[in-house]
Design a protein around this nucleic acid. Structure first.
Lengths: 341, 341
DNA sequence: CCATTGAATTGAAACGATTCATAATCTGGT
DNA sequence: ACCAGATTATGAATCGTTTCAATTCAATGG
């Protein structure tokens, strides 16, 4: 049905090998032949069959990307950066969301293994990386995204979440808040733990400061709203003076609940810091101060690392990229507060 | 290197054909053989090579999806719906964003053609569909998403954008606004044209009503903000009494600019209607009234149509699904306004 | 006990691009 | 005219799976 190299070869009066060479190493073919074959390819509308090419090559020209939540703007940006960079290098990206479920993650990995992806970018759901070890041993480079492997046994591109938590908490302390609330969860998520940890380390070092945890079941606007309602319902004296939310979706939910309650002013009564600096943090009811992660850059860098590792083969040096997040100050923590030096 | 059916066959003492049968039609193989082969597959860690499978089958088990902007929440939802429905039918989705660029779109189509995708879902950048014709003639079903083909030569799943524009404008007229501004562009985008057209048809029918166009270079918050600044800078008497933005991102930008200018109150001085009803429209400074498109449903339906068309072969009947959008009223057009019957 | 049927299994052909050892052709130097 | 060396071109083998006509085997009925 479809046109194959054989058809092109016949029509151009050359061998299939030559057609393949025109496609892949034109320098090896005489200019006149290149023109002739190219013309025939154009005329017949020949399109390479990637499956055959892959079969011969042993691996595909696409990467697998497994994110925790495809609809989270942070991962959207990571995906965007990765897709961009991959496309520039002639690769495509197979994207899938694990939605925090181990079985979804497993199914995606099955799929990607069958496709013989040239590399794997993943934000793993769990800390057990044994499956990833096996995949790498089978020859597929693996790069962890937004998640350092404690033991550096995998290359990774991540953001220093502990430092991010520290930056957020310090900002609130600098704004003279002492009783701080942390909204986030579930604690199974490493990023949540790390951000909390950073905040705790700051609070612990300041006499008179305290940190209260308001747990959530997911990192969503909905869960944030629920937490915000819980906080608004507290007697005024028991409410925290500031809240650090584990991501911006939560922060937006918290903000909505606080504002709608009518009992709490932001930032006067409660200052609020989010995390991720998604595009919409800026356009919330009160623009939200947030800790920005260079999401697009993370996606791009992850692909770069993957390309290098694929190039270098199984004994590649592991690279640990750690970006440092930075505070983007907005109205939710008041204007004119001194920025931390 | 990797384990193949041949290895499994040798180890289990059967032929390769039998291994393949165990994998694809276990009913044809005796139970005892199934168990034995399955056990060997497990033990050797055999993983099917999808490239070989595809090569034999002639086409892949994935669909290509080309959206205009992967970061736009509307398309995220479409993608989500498509992925869901595809997975339910044993297909995966290759997603790519054209970012409104003809060359990006071309590269993605090249890639998808080489992958021999089983079908193509696309929101085309331009109105020239000749390339899509060729693809379909080569045997790949094509479904246009969020974009009707005027001549019905392609199946499509879209929303009636003209009607959407009408609904938005009528809502503003009902709120006693007469001088209406339209923020949107570039006009090359069909959706923008249609929404404008709908609004114009309503305005034209109301004596004393007028529509002024504020062009933008893209459908982004940034461009919306720029347009909003232009509007805020106008002398009060020359400002429109209401604004219809071609999508919610623009509307959010406009809103930010108006509010930050300090000169304009929303909705008192200027009422605002957006389009798409993205999740964040609700959590803007002033919750934004918007025209909602059933995005997830669109993605699902598009896959359904694609499946039917793939089933029916080249002479399939073209289906034109047109959803009607509906107004979601919020504070940006004032509370308690009468909803249109 | 043979013939017939049906189930289970086999093994070679096919899919289409790439590779690589080999062959053909061309250069220019003597 | 001849040859060495460089440049081009060839085509069979290969990748791993699926398919399908052919074969084997066992069971059933006459």
């Amino acid at each position: 049905m479809a046109i194959s190299v054989r058809d092109v070869a016949r029509e151009a009066g050359v061998s299939v090998g030559t057609v393949s060479n025109v496609l892949n190493r034109p320098a090896m073919v005489s200019p006149s032949t290149v023109t002739r074959v190219t013309e025939v390819i154009e005329r017949l509308g020949f399109v390479r069959n990637d499956a055959a090419r892959q079969l011969r090559a042993g691996r595909s020209r696409s990467f697998g990307l497994v994110v925790l939540d495809a609809r989270n703007p942070f991962f959207m940006d990571v995906t965007h950066g990765a897709q961009q960079r991959a496309l520039d290098n002639g690769y495509s990206v197979l994207m899938g969301a694990s939605d925090d479920s181990v079985s979804n993650e497993g199914r995606l990995l099955d799929l990607f293994e069958e496709q013989r992806v040239a590399g794997l970018l993943i934000s793993p759901v769990r800390t057990d990386l044994s499956r990833l070890w096996r995949i790498r041993e089978a020859g597929t480079p693996v790069v962890l995204v937004d998640r350092g492997s404690g033991d550096q046994s995998f290359s990774s591109v991540s953001v220093n979440d502990v430092e991010g938590g520290r930056i957020a908490a310090q900002h609130l302390i600098d704004a003279s808040r002492r009783r701080i609330g942390f909204v986030g969860g579930p604690m199974e998520i490493e990023q949540v733990r790390h951000r909390l940890e950073g905040a705790q380390s700051v609070v612990a070092a300041v006499p008179g400061a305290s940190l209260e945890i308001f747990g959530t079941k997911a990192l969503s606007v909905f869960e944030g709203r629920a937490a915000g309602e819980r906080i608004a319902a507290l007697p005024a004296a028991r409410r925290p003076e500031a809240i650090f939310a584990a991501n911006d979706l939560l922060a937006m939910g918290v903000l909505q609940a606080l504002v709608m309650s009518g009992k709490v002013r932001v930032p006067e009564d409660i200052a609020l810091v989010g995390y991720d600096d998604i595009a919409f943090a800026e356009s919330a009811v009160v623009p939200i101060t947030s800790v920005r992660q260079p999401a697009v850059e993370i996606g791009r860098t992850a692909v770069d690392v993957l390309l290098r590792e694929a190039e270098a083969g199984p004994d590649a040096v592991r690279e640990q990229f750690v970006f440092t997040p930075k505070l983007v100050q907005r109205a939710s923590t008041g204007a004119g507060l001194p920025a931390r030096p």
